[in-house]
Each structure stands twice: as C-alpha cells, then as structure tokens.
Computed example of a mutant assay.
Amino acid sequence: MSSDEDFSLVPDDHLSNTLKKIQKEIERLKVEQRTLEEDKQFLIDAKNSNVKFTQDFQKAAEDVKKRIETTKRTQAVTVRKVQEKLAGLKQEQMKLKMEISETVKELDYTDETQKSLKQQTEVSTAVPEKKVVFKGEMADGTHAPGFDIQPRVVYPMEEGTALITFEEEQVANKLLALKKHEVQLGDCSITVQAEPVQFLVPTDVSMDTNVCPRRVLVSNLPKSESTERILDKLEIHFSKTKNKGGEVDEVVLLEDSGNVVITFTDNNIASVLTNTPMHEIEIERGKKHKVKVTPFLNGEITLLKTGTTSCSRTVLLTGIPAVMDKDSLQDLLEIHFQKSTNSGGEVDAIVYNPAGERTLAVFEEDSPQTE
C-alpha cells in the first residue's frame, strides 16, 4: 500500500474550527491569567497594606503603652502626693482632737474647781460657830491639816493581861528592855512579861464631800431647853412656808456635837434656808432664839492609809494568872511597878483584865508633857 493510502486528509473547515477553538481557549486563558495576576497584585497590595497597618498599629500600640505608663507614673506621683496630704490632714486632725480633748479636760477641771470652790465656800459656812483665840502658835500652810481629828482607838484586851501607863516614857522603855518581871503577891509571886502596845492608826485620810440637797445643819441651839422641846419647835418652825421651809421628813439630834440635822421631803428647801444663815425660832410664846442654819455635808472616804504606832508610855503585861480578885491584883501590880527598885515609876493609869472577862481599853492622843 502506498503512503497516500495511510493518511486521510482533514477538511479545511474542521481544522479552522479547531484552531479557532484553540485560539479562543488561549484568549480565555490569557484573560484568566490577567485576572489571576490582578488578583495576585491585589493580594500583594493587600498584604503590603496589612503589613503597613500592622506596623502602624504596633507603633500606635507602643505609643499608647508609653502614654499609659507615663499616665500611671503621673497618677502614682499624684496618689502619693494625695496620700501624703491626707496623712498630714490626719495628723492635723489628731492634733486638733488632742487639743480639743485637752481643752475639754481643762474645762472639766475648771468646772470641778468651780464646784470645789463653791463647796468649800459652802463648807466654810457649814461648820457650826466656835469661839477661838490665837495663842501665838504658827504652822506651815502647806502642811496644815484641813481637819483636826483627835485619835481614839478602842483596844480589846486579851484575858490575863494588864495595861499600865507611866508618867515618864523612859520607865516604860526600861520595863520593855527587861521583858520579864517577877511580881511579889504576899506569900507568892508571879512572873509577867512586858510587851509594847502596837496598833494600826490612820495616817492619811482623804474625803470627798458634797452638800446634801435635802438636809440642813442647825447649830447655836439654846442650852436651857429640853431636847424634845427643841426638836419639836425646830420641826414646827421649819415646816412652815412662811419661814421658807417645807414638809419635814426627819429631825435628828447629833449627840456628839449637840447640833440638829433636819431632813426635808423636797430637794429645793435646804438651799433656800441656807441662803439666810441666821433664823429666829420661837421657843416660848413671845421668846425667840437665833439659830444658825448651814448646809449639811455628805462625806465619802476616798483614801485611807494606815500605819503602825506604838504607845510610848504604855506597857502591856501578859501572863497574869487569876490568883486573887481583880481589884486586889490590880492594886498589887500598880504598887509593884510604882517602885523604882522594881525598875518602875509613877503610874498614870492601869487596867487589869482577868480571865473570863471582856475589857475594851480606849487610847486617846497623848497630851504634850509640860515642864
């Protein structure tokens, strides 16, 4: 077979169409390529834009961070200054509070001082009148006592003991130094022991006093009338409103001073009466007597200090047996200790408490020895 028989000829129309199709596909691909290139460029531009935006954002973020840190530092400085100022204001407030407290204390102290001075003024008028005379004795004002209290101690004696007081202190000291003493009692003798007499006495007493609103103290009473009559007349007089009085609750005589305490049911009577110290009361018809009306003081002990004291002229004799009657034994003890040969001396007082009896000895202030 020849070569011409192996190939068939393609019509020209078919080839032309095929070429057109290829050319059209190429055109399409070119358009698609251009679109892709445009998309690529768009993406590249978008990427570059995003990179720039990111860089700008990072820079802006850094700037914001710096501004925030600067603001924080500024705020910290401001807060510290405010805190320092607040601390200063608190210190100033505390200082002002302390000053106010001190001022209040001073005002309270001033009020208390005024009340105390007022009470002292009232106290000075509340003491019944007594006649006094200056005898030339001087005292340091800083140590002068506010009240003169006479010491009085009640001493319970034990059984089989005696208290003996000598006129001279050295006699008591001599007996105490010897301690044991043999006392001759007729045909027999006894041995007694000399001991010092010691007890607690007040050394410092402080009292708070206040004027009672319902009571008055009446002094300068007549001596010639009976107590019952005086009490009745006082109650009648001071219960009348025309005498600036009121309803009387109680009328009591103070036995130690001879003055009278009148208690009213109302609180405002006492202050009115004490504004006029002297009052005339009618004891008998047509016979009047002036009495003094002063505030009545209520007292409360706020400080009491005690100390041990010894009797310089008194000796306690112990170990005394009941060998005879009380009076005879007491006389023999006095006779024995009055003799200088027995180391004794002049006896000022003696009391003997035998077994089975109860005796209370009263000690009072020792009077100064006169030369």
Rank of each mutant, 00 (worst) to 15 (best):
N268Y: 14
K288I: 15
E300H: 06
R313N: 12
K290M: 09
E225R: 07
G245D: 05
R285D: 13
L254P: 11
I236L: 12
V248D: 04
K287C: 07
T314V: 06
G258I: 08
I281H: 00
L234T: 05
T318E: 03
N243W: 00
R229D: 12
S271F: 08
I301R: 07
V218T: 00
K292Y: 10
N298Q: 14
L234G: 04
F238T: 00
R215N: 14
V251I: 07
S239N: 01
L217K: 11
P277K: 04
V272Q: 01
N267F: 14
I283T: 01
K240G: 12
V216N: 06
I283Y: 02
E284R: 05
K242W: 12
K290F: 15
S226W: 03
V260T: 06
K292I: 08
I269W: 03
E247R: 13
V251T: 14
S219Y: 02
N243D: 10
D256K: 07
V248W: 00
G286E: 03
P213V: 12
E255P: 09
K290T: 09
K305L: 07
D256I: 11
S271N: 11
E225A: 15
T302C: 00
D232A: 15
K292S: 06
T263D: 03
H289N: 08
H237S: 11
K223T: 09
L297F: 13
V260I: 05
L253C: 06
R229L: 15
T227M: 10
G286V: 06
L217H: 07
C311K: 03
G319E: 01
T294C: 08
H279V: 11
V252C: 02
I283P: 01
E280W: 04
N275W: 02
V252G: 02
L254Y: 11
